[in-house]
Design a protein around this nucleic acid. Structure first.
Lengths: 228, 228
DNA sequence: AGCACTTTGTGACCTTGTGCACAAGCTCGG
DNA sequence: CCGAGCTTGTGCACAAGGTCACAAAGTGCT
């Protein structure tokens, strides 16, 4: 039972894995399977079974010993925990290459996320339609956020604009930001910020690959389950 | 001095931050500043100073007490450590929305990474030119990888194709893979795998935002420096 | 040279996360 | 109703990472 008072604390590492379990469970349900063991779920999620059990135990005791977890029930609990039972309108700021791709990304709306607005600073892009949505000007950001009840902002601008856009998003009341710009962005307490940086990922890969080359055929701990 | 035998081990968490320092240092050098303190670098990188010092100390003792670090020297050492002194030809597999955007991403080649090939399974896309490069068929992957000495593979296909593409990349000799597809992919030991997953990032944000809402105005540890 | 001041490098400690191993608990067959 | 066979839930030990605080080592002024 989801204890109410005190609200059990779920470790950050676990939170990062819940979406992976969630996806695996949806696929399992799709396949018509109604029960799943931690072992099986672990395989699907690419982790080990003990971790799955411990992670799931933070949500409550939803398994049955000797049997496993009921897929539908788990899906329900995880989606509740992740807040996927509600709608999350998203604004994408910066409609360049990446912004375009994100705007057109199917499976965005899939899990309750919906691109509600597109914003760009370039007047040449404003009014244009992208992925069926009209692009608004950066100066209208606050209005758009308020009018469409946007709760998540995605920064897809060049690095130089990232911090200012973040500031404007926060000012407009957005409490969750996903930054794709290759720049360090800081936000006040109470605002969640995550980043996705292609260049950094490549450089990390480069590091390990160089190492491997240096070492010749020596053993090297492969990088797995990165970024999680 | 980079001790040779044994090769000091650099913690994974540190490796993930080196690219951030690197970028900050390049900007600092650009601005004509020749010396930087751990405090300043920490601010630019969005971490704390002790962490910067400890991270840098894994590379060697490159600072001068009472003064700071020489920017150019640090840039050089970090780029050597990350393997950025060499060229890394990259193949992008899956030329859909995202693949397109990645192929056109400037600042890709910036740090030694170069899009050397584009591959797609759809015969309709093959031969077409994207970002100045001709798209090759998936069956030619091995040839292309060998001919252009590709060392890093980027998976930008739908989830359903991800594992097979990964297998083919590995088979073709690619030892570093960056997976953008929303699927768990597994690779053999000795191959590095990192993933970037938009849906997961959004779901994590969703979790914390739901929490915040539940708690009303209660204190909540903001999510920072995610994914690092 | 001496002294005040700055900044690095690191040892000690704490927090978080992981993995193992096993008791507890459930099902099912006989 | 009992025992065999699974599978969960978790206590514990350990590994990894982060933070603090301070000695060591440099600079520059007088």
């Amino acid at each position: 039972m989801a204890d109410r008072a005190g609200q059990r604390r779920i470790p950050e590492a676990t939170v990062a894995r819940l979406p992976i379990y969630y996806r695996a469970l949806l696929e399992t349900a799709e396949a018509g399977v109604s029960t799943i063991s931690s072992e099986r779920l672990a395989t699907l999620a690419g982790v080990n079974a003990a971790k799955v059990r411990k992670d799931l135990s933070y949500l409550g005791s939803y398994g049955t010993r000797g049997v496993g977890y009921e897929v539908d029930h788990l899906v329900h609990e995880i989606s509740r925990e992740l807040g996927l039972t509600q709608d999350w309108p998203v604004v994408i700021v910066g409609i360049g290459n990446l912004g375009h791709a994100l705007a057109n990304y199917r499976g965005f709306g899939a899990r309750g996320f919906r691109v509600a607005a597109l914003v760009d600073a370039d007047p040449g892009k404003v009014e244009r339609k992208v992925a069926g949505l009209q692009v608004d000007g950066l100066d209208d950001l606050a209005d758009v956020v308020a009018a469409r009840d946007v709760s998540i902002g995605i920064i897809a601008t060049p690095a130089s604009a990232a911090q200012e856009v973040a500031d404007r998003l926060v000012e407009a009341g957005v409490r969750s930001i996903l930054n794709f710009a290759p720049a360090v962005v800081s936000v006040p307490d109470g605002v969640s910020l995550r980043k996705v940086d292609l260049a950094i990922e490549l450089q990390i890969l480069s590091f390990y690959q160089s190492r491997q080359a240096d070492l010749g055929a020596a053993a090297q701990p492969a990088v797995r389950e990165a970024q999680g």
